[in-house]
Design a protein around this nucleic acid. Structure first.
Lengths: 328, 328
DNA sequence: TTGTATGCGTTATCAC
DNA sequence: GTGATAACGCATACAA
């Protein structure tokens, strides 16, 4: 509702004088900063950076800016961090990681600041954005069943500490039951996430002479290690047996292309969280975000149905190693 | 300069009323926001997240907060992004990546906003924080010389695109000359950074029957790929030959522990940048940051001096593969 | 030491 | 449509 002439005149003056609005003054008057804070533990490793990237993308699209906080090591500092964010006047907060100190939630709601937890599902304390781990497990097991596998193993993360690891394990168990398959007890290993852990777990599994024809790995570091162990043992993958994994980091598939994996589009967690927060900040009272779907990615040849178990594979000559040319 | 009684009374009231200062009002009055912006291209991969982590740590220690911006894909959007940061009133800006649009620098200096470039050295446009790539090269070559190597190869990144790759290559060349060693022409490969590229480069190198006894890899993805190729070729590492690498991501060493690598404490770039910016914001006019030193990390046995070249190694029986137990 | 007025640059409200 | 004016909440300088 302004004449086109003056609008142009003003815009010209803006350009000429190099005027930029003062966000502080605007924030003071408008009572909002167009800023959301993110509290990020363990920034270095894991998939948090990707999630932050997605979050920033979604927020920037709506004109919001991301204020980043990382409680370096001390868990204790987090209340202070949250307070700093509130002083900065963030309009919303994204909490990365499922475990948060209780005080966080009370402070947040006392200040009526909308928030989400990212990389988690289900919490009594507020809404979460995360992946449908059960659906992912079904995805993997469906695929293995379709390939003709009947007996499978599982190398997963510790279920005691990790809610997601627990869900993955349970999902596998349920899906296996639904398909009438069996989970080999000797091929069931729980360990820390990591390359070496996967390597050692697979060696243990080979030594146990389990009759599993496929092994599911609970994350991609484990898968990379397991594949490396198979490689050294002279086992061809995926011809003789199938490895499938949950792919948190687009890592294992990168190292070993002929790998079936369930890929998590992690940036989407961030984007979903961003959209949700924007809606909350606009007072739209959106419905809680629903679990994000995985993507099943099958790389390399889908090949013939595997017939040999680990035991028989183990007895082959190590000289028949995979040729480089097979993996262009 | 306030009576202890009133101070206590005020603090109590603060606690009771749940008062938190209004940053916007404070920023308006003080003319500074205690906030610094970071412009981060290519957030997902690479070592940028670690640098951001370090930056945030250093800034938070001084009471500053990090405002994060990521020009998703479009290079063109960056001026708008910078403008948004300036509107938010950032007191300083950190630029990640060496290549920046020229307009960025003029805008920044027009607004008298201090800034640094991170992950780069030397620029006419402003101060940089980065690693001493020449020193790193010297570090690697010194180590190889000390182990007795005389002829080495180099698998590095493309020097045309990448200033850092260029510096690494030059550093290697100079250090090799200084030690009176030789750089085998057939064992000199320039490629993209990546696992598969390293894998293929090492295969090429093996096929070329070069007489190099050690190969330096220009980054850790290359090293991981190269080691994998050696592994499949049945070559023991590092007994028969040495692989050394510049370690940008703590990646190769993670996959293959017995690796000599020059490790970049990447978070330190961020911390150094943070300290520098804080000094600038305080008007302290600090001297330009000096190149950060690498750390030489030798993993596994430092072992006997290698004697066999790639050619001789190549002729061994593939059956003599490395045992798992050797790598606890 | 403590109280009090003024300005920081916008937005929003209200007369014009 | 357009112009003036009052908050917004804090820091600062000055008076008490």
């Amino acid at each position: 509702m302004i004449s086109d002439a003056t609008r142009h005149r003003v815009l010209a003056a803006v350009e000429r004088l190099g005027y930029v609005a003062n966000g502080a003054a605007r924030a003071l008057a408008m009572r909002r900063t167009m800023t959301v804070g993110a509290i990020v533990p363990r920034f270095g490793s894991s998939s948090f950076p990707t999630m932050i990237q997605g979050l920033e993308t979604a927020l920037a699209a709506k004109g919001y800016t991301l204020l980043l906080s990382a409680p370096a090591h001390e868990e204790a500092r987090e209340p202070a961090i949250l307070r700093a964010l509130i002083e900065r006047g963030v309009d919303a907060v994204a909490l990365l990681g499922s475990r948060q100190p209780r005080q966080t939630f009370s402070t947040l709601s006392a200040h009526r600041i909308p928030f989400v937890m990212m990389w988690a599902l289900e919490s009594d304390d507020g809404d979460c954005v995360g992946f449908d781990e059960h659906g992912a497990a079904a995805c993997v097991v469906d695929h293995l069943a379709q390939l003709g596998h009947r007996r499978i193993g599982f190398i997963g993360g510790h279920t005691a500490d990790n809610e997601r690891a627990r869900r993955r394990y349970r999902g596998i168990v349920e899906s296996v039951a639904r398909h009438g398959m069996s989970l080999c007890e000797r091929a069931l290993i729980e360990t820390d996430y990591g390359f070496r852990q996967g390597f050692e777990a697979m060696n243990t599994l080979i030594a146990s002479r389990s009759d599993a024809t496929a092994v599911v790995c609970g994350n991609d570091y484990l898968a990379a290690g397991a594949l490396s162990a198979l490689d050294r043992a002279g086992v061809e993958v995926p011809r003789d047996m199938s490895i499938a994994s949950f792919n948190d980091n687009e890592f294992a598939a990168y190292l070993h292309p002929p790998l079936t994996s369930v890929h998590l589009p992690i940036a989407e967690i961030g984007e979903q969280a961003g959209r949700y927060l924007v809606a909350r900040m606009r007072g739209e009272n959106p419905s809680p975000p629903s679990p994000l779907p995985f993507e099943l990615i099958v790389r390399g040849s889908s090949g013939p149905v595997p017939t040999r178990s680990l035991v028989s594979v183990r007895q082959r000559q190590p000289s028949k190693r995979r040729q480089t040319s097979e993996n262009p």
